[in-house]
């Protein structure tokens, strides 16, 4: 019985997991319950008024705006990130690869307020590039939907590189050679083997990028304030008391909307990841 010393402790060793589970239940679970409870309460009575209000008018515009922005950034970021990763993976220069991966590690974490300021200093109204290239005279503005997408790509593309490089490394050279050996052109290899094998990873990356942009608040707040309707900005607004008296719980309803969207997107991600792990083992 090799496990004898362990199994003696088995009966009570699960206790070590209790503090963690209790902590999550309290700090994470209670606020979630409160969101759920608050969403369906108005003026002390059970009601769906908050939910209804959260998917109407300006709130709906903001929710759709967030989804549109995140979807755009996710798809464009995934495509560009994949091309960049492929360029790096196929390169013979080991140092280039290391440099790009390290830079991606840093830049994918480069979000929030500093990111916004870096871009404002570059392409904002008095940014270095804006003024030196005379963009300001041509009606250029960074503070809109497209500007925000440009800035979000700055952390999304590196994140995609980090996600997709291991998958590209996992594409065995034998597969390409076996395909060639069976008469396939380069394009046919990608169509029948390369892209299908990468698809779970690519979709997983899209989901991750979507989640990152969807939840982003700091960058948008620092860059556009409320010029672009986004659900995170609306929630912050409502939390800061910028709502009708008695409608405070709309912020909670909007939060629930966000969680539902994020949850749906995540639900796609996990099974995909499992499948790609199996293929690329």
């Amino acid at each position: 019985m090799a496990n004898a010393p362990l199994s003696k402790n088995r009966s009570k060793s699960w206790l070590a997991a209790v503090p963690l589970l209790a902590f999550v239940a309290l700090v994470f679970g209670v606020p979630l319950v409160v969101i759920l409870g608050g969403t369906f309460t108005r003026g002390g009575a059970v009601s769906t008024a908050n939910v209804t209000e959260s998917v109407q008018g300006a709130y709906l515009t903001a929710l759709l705006g967030s989804v549109k922005l995140s979807a755009l950034v996710a798809v464009v970021g995934a495509v560009l990130g994949t091309f960049l990763a492929q360029a790096v993976v196929t390169s013979r220069f080991r140092a280039l690869r290391e440099a790009v991966l390290t830079a991606s590690g840093v830049l994918s974490n480069f979000g929030g307020v500093p990111l916004a300021f870096a871009w404002i200093a570059t392409l904002g109204n008095s940014g270095v590039i804006t003024t030196s290239l005379g963009f300001d005279a041509r009606g250029w503005s960074l503070y809109n939907f497209w500007g925000l997408a440009l800035v979000y790509l700055y952390f999304s593309i590196p994140l995609m590189v980090l996600v997709v490089v291991p998958a590209l490394d996992g594409l065995r050279p034998q597969w390409r050679e076996a395909a060639q050996n069976n008469g396939a052109s380069a394009w046919q290899f990608w169509r029948y083997v390369g892209i299908p094998v990468l698809t779970p990873t690519l979709l997983g990356g899209v989901v991750l990028l979507f989640g990152g942009s969807f939840a982003a608040y700091a960058t948008a707040q620092a860059m556009v304030g409320s010029a672009v309707p986004l659900v995170t900005l609306q929630i912050a607004n409502a939390l800061s008391g910028n709502v009708l008296i008695g409608h405070e719980n709309v912020a909670l309803a909007l939060s629930l909307d966000m969680i539902v969207v994020a949850g749906l997107v995540m639900a796609v991600y996990l099974p995909l990841q499992r499948r790609s792990a199996r293929w690329l083992r």
Binding site: G38, G211, F214, Y217, L252, M266
Partner: peptide, 26 residues
């Protein structure tokens, strides 16, 4: 454990803080 530890990824910080601030108010 894995699900419990992954769950916070699904919940954007802004919604989390919405819940927290409500708890702190209540």
């Amino acid at each position: 454990l894995e699900v419990v530890c992954t769950l916070p990824l699904v919940v954007p910080p802004i919604t989390f803080v919405a819940g927290i601030s409500k708890v702190l108010q209540w």
